[in-house]
Design a protein around this nucleic acid. Structure first.
Length: 585
DNA sequence: GCCGTTTTCGGCCCGACTGTTTTCAGTCG
């Protein structure tokens, strides 16, 4: 996929244009970059199939940018961009990553001092050369040094699963302050994005200064980035930043809306406000001087002519249009999102990750019951994954009979226990040629089969796509685990043709997994949305190895919601009989 | 440079904070 690659160049062109002080074009390039990055088709395929005209289908891409994309696809270069690089050969992206340094400052430090990268910038700042530049001073220099130190220390973003528990702890602490009347979390955490940059808190308080004081002196705060009358920003020892804003009650809803974002969602909303002769900002919706909404988030959306929508949807990928249609009573409104309580069981659980003496399957079943589930599926690794104690055919037959025994024991128990069901499964390996490492006869004896790629991740796109499709065509395979293989911030996705995979999944009635493991969250939201549009069924699993990981399901559900998934799209929202019927078809 | 149930031309989201100025530019979210 070259989408990301070209998008990055477009973003950099935007920065160069900003350096030059060009108006409006930077926004156009940023928009086109985002359009390309979030476009659900491979730009190379698009160009091959539909030519130059196809490129203009990408949101934000018109005549001129389409030409530049075409140039890149043909030659691997864009002259317009190369010319900028010749003029100012700075690592723009690296330099603007420093807090307080933007394109204009990058231009000045290059032209005055010839600085092109972070190391040179750091050296110049240490030598006291930065403070002498026009528009710079001692403080800016100091901030640059601290900003660079920060970048070196942290990579910048955190996994949702890493940060959400901490965010909730901080929330609980802040909420206890007697000066805080009301508190909410905004930002990407409220939208449950797969990675989080920082935490945003919003509060109502009669005594904002006091809240600011308390916020910057909270335990865990190692640095105060800034502190004003209504806003403060701090760095935490765990490595992330937190912001807080104190907001008047009458503006709480609009502030919550504004600080939840996304940025693109907000920009779209403001345009709609303007079209209606209104002005939208974090303090409310205004008609002239008169405030027409603000205290309540739902009201804010309502006066803009649309229904309220879940934060997970707010990425400006069609949710605003859907909310408007819904408010007008038209069909094709907002999706009725799967709820965090809709999952009835988890089918990706490894009980034998350590060869322990206990009864790990029963332990898993009891934990799942406590979790409110009606069933759990035990899906051990299979023999090709020796390092994970993968089971061979003989051991799998034993696995099946063991589960039968536990099931019959449970069925004689009382109430909840008697209705609970353990399903026998496995997570088999999709070998290089697309075959499965377990004999079909044994696969047939299991309640369900998950198949996944666990080796040879770096195959060319046609081969990897064919490999997975062949696995789906095996009549015993019911689910493909972590379909793209990404490890967030660690490993790229495998090269696959997502459209072809979706087509095959629908044709073979194979469910695609939404793996809830915090560093996987695989499939990601845009693929979930595509899968749903194509009528492909999905399943949200945790890939747990111990009972305490069952709660990861929340992260998988959040990604499903971000992908517009409804209850019917997700097969483990179904009762066990319907689920087994699906597997048997 | 893009885009259009008011437009193929004339618009393009908005406010807080910082650091540098002496009324504001740059950056951020």
């Amino acid at each position: 996929m070259k989408n990301q690659e070209i998008a990055r160049i477009l973003y950099e062109i935007a920065e160069y244009l900003e350096m030059e002080g060009v108006a409006f074009k930077p926004r156009a390039y940023n928009k086109a970059g985002l359009g390309l990055e979030t476009f659900n088709r491979d730009v190379e395929d698009l160009y091959k199939e539909e030519g130059f005209k196809g490129l203009k289908k990408i949101p934000g891409v018109g005549e001129s940018i389409a030409q530049k994309i075409e140039e890149y696809l043909k030659t691997g270069k864009i002259k317009y961009y190369e010319d900028f690089k010749k003029k100012i050969p700075s690592s723009v992206e690296a330099l603007t990553a420093v807090e307080g340094v933007g394109p204009r400052k990058v231009k000045i430090i290059y032209e005055e001092l010839g600085i092109k990268n972070l190391d040179e910038l750091e050296k110049a700042a240490e030598e006291g050369k930065i403070r002498k530049l026009p528009g710079f001073g001692e403080k800016t220099e100091k901030n640059i040094l601290e900003g660079i130190a920060f970048l070196k220390r942290e990579k910048g973003r955190f996994l949702l699963g890493e940060i959400l528990p901490t965010a909730r702890e901080v929330f609980a602490k802040l909420e206890k302050l007697k000066e805080v009347e009301k508190l909410s979390m905004g930002g990407s955490v409220r939208r449950m994005k797969d990675t989080i940059g920082d935490l945003d808190f919003l509060a109502i308080s009669e005594n904002p200064e006091k809240v600011m004081d308390l916020f910057v002196s909270m335990p865990g705060v190692v640095r105060v980035w800034g502190k004003g009358a209504t806003r403060a920003s701090v760095h935490m020892s765990q490595g992330f930043d937190m912001d807080i804003r104190v907001i008047p009650r009458k503006s709480y809803g609009s502030a919550l809306q504004y600080f939840t974002g996304s940025r693109e969602h907000n920009i779209h909303l403001r345009k709609i406000a303007i079209e209606k002769g209104l002005k939208l900002n974090e303090y409310g919706v205004f008609k002239g001087q008169e405030m027409v909404a603000g205290e309540d988030e739902e009201e804010v959306y309502k006066v803009l002519g649309m229904n309220w929508m879940a934060p997970e949807l707010r990425e400006n990928t069609g949710e605003i249009e859907a909310a408007i249609r819904e408010a007008q009573g038209k069909p094709d409104g907002l999706p009725k999102l799967i709820d965090y309580k809709d999952i009835k069981g988890d089918l990706h659980y490894h009980s034998r990750w350590q060869e322990s003496d206990g009864t790990p399957i029963e332990e898993a079943a009891l934990a799942a019951m406590d979790f409110g589930y009606e069933y759990i599926g035990i899906s051990e690794h299979t023999k090709a994954l020796k390092i994970e104690h993968g089971l061979d055919e003989k051991q799998l037959l034993h696995h099946i009979s063991e589960i039968e025994k536990i099931n019959s024991r449970l069925s004689q128990g009382s109430g909840k226990q008697s209705k609970f069901r353990i399903l026998s499964g496995c997570e088999a390996n999709i070998m290089q040629d697309g075959s499965i490492d377990i004999d079909d006869k044994v696969l047939a004896g299991l309640d369900y089969v998950i198949a996944g790629v666990h080796s040879k991740f770096k195959m060319p796109v046609e081969k990897m796509t064919g490999r997975i499709i062949k696995a789906m065509e095996n009549p015993h395979v019911d689910i493909i685990s972590h379909p793209t293989g990404r490890l967030i911030m660690k490993r790229e996705e495998y090269q696959i043709d997502v459209e072809k995979i979706l087509e095959a999944a629908r044709g073979t009635k194979t469910a695609l997994e939404i793996n809830s493991y915090p560093e996987r969250l695989d499939m990601k939201d845009v693929y979930i949305k595509r899968a749903r549009e194509e009528g492909v069924k999905m399943i949200i699993n945790t890939d747990s190895h111990i009972p305490s990981q069952l709660h990861y399901i929340e992260y998988g559900i959040s990604q499903a919601r971000r992908g517009w998934a409804e209850k019917e799209d997700i097969i483990n929202c179904w009762p066990v009989e319907k689920l087994l019927k699906f597997f048997n078809e």
